[in-house]
Write a protein that binds this DNA or RNA. Structure first.
Lengths: 341, 341
DNA sequence: CTGAAAGCGCTAACAG
DNA sequence: CTGTTAGCGCTTTCAG
């Protein structure tokens, strides 16, 4: 029992005493339509409360005006900002967004579904690893896909933040401004290029200042909630614990702060802790996290626009690197008042 | 140039040397089909990598197998959990989910769009106020809608948490277990029934114990990030500030903690602060927030299921109240070890 | 058990 | 400027 009756184009045509093509014309104002007829049609439209069916139109046009957004976990603050970016851009272009937020092992299937069954016009992938062959094939067929935060090795529009640059700025702040030399690192998932780049930046900066990062100072995390805790403990259990800890993301940095506090330590006095991402949580830890901000909303927006562009003309796929900016709060050891920048 | 060629039902039919109706039959296995033909068809399907177009099917069936989820703000941790619930349930039923996360002033329009243009089969609304007349009309036409967290005064499946009960448990903990009598309250948006119920619960408990909540102890917030800060300051500026503060949600409670700390106070020693929702942030403040947990994932899941049910048979719309549970951490004054429950 | 044909709501040539 | 007509890909009677 659920077929609310919506007016169809035929009813509008009948009421306006014109043919359906004329109605279609005023709808899409393509050709010139006589002002009088146009008015009649428009009156009929409003009288009937008519709105064209997006999917009947989709069938005819072979364009669904729907885009798919696939991410491993939308509850992650970092991704949900992106969703907003994609959505706002989508709305502006009269698109709807189907979102798929599924654990990694399901993304491949959803990806396929969205494309084959749902016939989305394009896809935005973030933080997931799709099978390269699958992707390659779609690309070759000219299917518009934008990839965020991953370099998949296929020629698609790719959006990444400057992980190295951002991490480097943060590392320099730690090494130069604060003079730390013994710095630990909590890693993210091993399949994440961002993780590697952040670690490299830290290592480079340290080397440039005559220090190094011993193997035992690099402890494993997963980017996920809770994983910073055991990692931090491991660091704290070392004969000589680090003076500062760089966690691959804010979530783990927050875990690390809790872990330190549980051990009776007071960051940043006893140990400095910094993160990456600048999620909401970062402002609410005690002390607030010094971190690196990623422009996730903008990334989302631009990814959608890239898809749209690819849909219209076949651009050469760009790879854009967005700047990440240092956000200095207090967890690095800076005082609330004397914030450097 | 973006028309990846997908196989159509005709090609499958041709290859299997049957008619398209037969293909359709094996697809939906409705009628009996001869095993041999069935096999031929299935072989053709896999050979061609055929998948039926969801929206061509939608046109014929008048069912899009798409559901709309409308919320004011998906970056709010509380809502994003819900999205996951809706999505998981949707996938299980072979549905896709279009999400609309738009500021309040836009939701009405999106609501209308999703329904008229997108022809979604149903809608889940959370935390928004749609025009009652609009809604009423859709309902009467038998359009399936589930409403979360609002009582819209129309007969639709409604899912709310037991705000009163949850808040009451929290208030009793404050009043009975801790013995507080001077308790301040930071309100949420005035259009939110949850807000009112929470305040009422606090007031009732206080009264039952011979105390009251003076007008100046109720200060305005908006539920949104940052709004707890000025509210808390206002409370702290009072000649006699409260001993404890109940914020209408965790986000504002977190703001309140920061505000207190900025004033040189140390919660919960100098002032207790509690919230509502149990979002991720609640575990990471210092001290961690004592709060009330809402089962948002489950709410989302059940809301979708209600929509689906309404789609099939026309049930009488239920109104289900889900239990909220007290989560005791440290911001109320409990020590980490000696947690009551 | 299977095929032919109509129709879902809309767009897009092609003729007037 | 406007109407006719042929699809878009699928389901569904209605006949065999």
């Amino acid at each position: 029992m659920s077929k609310p009756k919506r007016a169809t184009i035929d009813e509008v045509a009948e009421r306006a005493e014109v043919s359906i093509s004329t109605v279609s014309r005023v709808l899409n104002n393509l050709d010139r339509v006589h002002p009088d007829t146009r008015k009649r049609v428009q009156d009929a439209i409003t009288a009937l409360g008519y709105e064209p069916s997006a999917f009947a139109r989709g069938l005819a046009l072979q364009r669904t005006h729907t885009i798919g957004f696939i991410t491993p976990n939308i509850t992650d603050a970092f991704y949900s900002e992106m969703v907003r970016g994609v959505e706002d851009a989508a709305i502006a272009a009269n698109y709807s967004m189907i979102v798929a937020s599924q654990p990694a092992h399901n993304t491949e299937r959803r990806f396929h579904q969205l494309f084959t069954q749902r016939r989305v016009d394009g896809l935005v992938l973030v933080g997931i690893n799709v099978d390269r062959a699958d992707l390659q094939q779609l690309i070759e067929q000219g299917f518009p896909i934008a990839v965020i935060q991953r370099d998949l090795g296929v020629p698609v529009p790719t959006f990444v933040v400057d992980n190295y640059g951002g991490a480097r700025a943060l590392a320099e702040h730690l090494v130069i401004d604060h003079g730390y030399r013994r710095i630990g690192y909590i890693t993210g998932g091993s399949d994440s290029p961002g993780n590697t780049q952040r670690l490299n930046a830290l290592r480079d900066v340290l080397r440039e200042h005559g220090a190094d990062i011993p193997p035992e100072y690099v402890v494993p995390g997963t980017f996920l909630r809770g994983s910073g805790d055991p990692a931090m403990r491991q660091l704290l259990d070392l004969p000589q614990p680090p003076e500062a800890v760089f966690a691959a993301n804010d979530q783990m940095a927050a875990d690390a702060i809790s872990a330190a506090r549980t051990r009776g330590l007071t960051p940043p006095h006893d140990i400095a802790i910094v993160g990456f991402d600048d999620i909401v949580l970062a402002s609410y830890t005690t002390p607030p996290l010094t971190t690196v901000r990623q422009p996730s909303y903008e990334i989302g927006r631009r990814a959608f626009e890239a898809v749209l562009r690819a849909l219209d003309d076949n651009m050469t796929p760009e790879r854009v690197v967005l700047p990440a900016s240092l956000v200095i709060r207090e967890s690095c050891g800076c005082s609330p008042s004397a914030r450097t920048s």
